[in-house]
Computed example of a mutant assay.
Amino acid sequence: MDGDLPGPQSGPMETFETLVRAEFAPKNTFLNTASSGLLPARTVAALHEAVAVRAEGRPLGPLWEDVEAARASFARLAGVPVARVAAGPSVAAQTGLVAASLPPGAEVLTAEDDFTSVVNPFHVRGDLKVRAVPLERLAESVRPGTALVAVSAAQSADGRIADLPALREAATAHGARTYVDFSQAAGWLPMEAEGFDFTVCTTYKWLLGPHGAAVLVVPEDHGDLTPILATWVSAEKPWDSCYGPVQELAHSARRFDGPPALFSYAGLRHSLALIEELGVAAVHAHDLALADRFRAGLATLGREALPAPGSAIVSVPGLGHRQPELGRAGIEVSNRAGNLRASFHLYNTTADVDRLLDVLSG
């Protein structure tokens, strides 16, 4: 990591930088967390240990403990009781679970061009009324008869942040449930899952975990969900439920668990622990300082990012075609719908921002 982290270099910030530098040593200018985050050193070590456990034939008990540790850590970050947290493989699978709970003809309100995993499971049902509106009109578009509003907290394509307080108020007024995907927000944007019926999050982006894990927060009353993926791990007593139908499903959200990818959770618990140690508020301030530096630098180049105030994701119209060139220069960014998308996270520095601006200016 070249360059300084933004902000004062003493007190809590010094601890932030020390922790980050101990965990990350990227070999390039990595500005693509919105696609996939870097793995901390502690997570890499845990993955190696998990593989060794399997290779050497040691008991798998510790790997199952990792699932519960990750579940508890995510619950703390989300601000909900751990009993509301279900572990699964992907956002699409969790969305499918929610979609399956809706009665035929139910109206689902979504944002236009939201990420496919958030919306497609509702479309493929075939018997739901799915209505899409511009993100900025989402709250005002909730109406009597809307059964569910589904939206990403931060948009993948351009980083725009949904007005979640307004959405919550509108949904409450009309008796609609809410389903919020925090995949592009959890880890840098404070997450208050308590205010929504369902929240979901994949963990390989801003939460810095391995691929293969996603977490669903359900209501205390389980929100009419049917545990259609339930198997022995979803039982109140899993090891007594390995054969035949499960006689007693878990009383908690664990009844909605799918068989977990143990390696993924072995690493994830350590990634989540790092986010907790750093604090989401500190990560938020760090990430936004870098994003704002990039926006300001774009202005000096005669460019303007798509409007996404307060976001760590910055998309620049008309520059997506330069992604291959930037890749050759050792700068990892994304091309999304013709836009150049840069995403700034805790391991990035001011030097990373300036390096990107320098290459763009050339």
Rank of each mutant, 00 (worst) to 15 (best):
A214E: 01
V215R: 01
L216W: 02
V217H: 00
P219T: 02
E220T: 11
H222T: 00
D224A: 13
D224G: 06
L225T: 04
T226H: 06
P227Y: 09
I228D: 05
I228Y: 09
L229N: 07
L229P: 01
L229W: 10
L229D: 08
L229V: 08
T231V: 11
T231Y: 11
A235M: 10
K237Q: 12
P238K: 08
W239A: 06
S241C: 07
S241G: 08
C242M: 13
Y243K: 10
G244P: 05
L249E: 03
A250E: 03
A250Y: 08
H251C: 02
H251W: 11
R254V: 10
R255Q: 14
F256P: 12
F256L: 15
G258P: 06
P260V: 14
L262R: 06
L262I: 11
L262H: 03
F263A: 10
F263M: 09
S264R: 04
G267M: 12
L268V: 09
H270W: 11
S271Q: 03
L272S: 02
A273W: 01
L274R: 07
I275P: 01
E276Y: 05
E277C: 13
E277V: 14
L278C: 13
V280H: 02
A281Q: 12
A281W: 07
A282M: 15
A282R: 15
V283H: 03
A285S: 13
A285Q: 13
H286N: 04
H286W: 10
D287R: 14
D287S: 15
L290K: 06
L290V: 13
R295M: 12
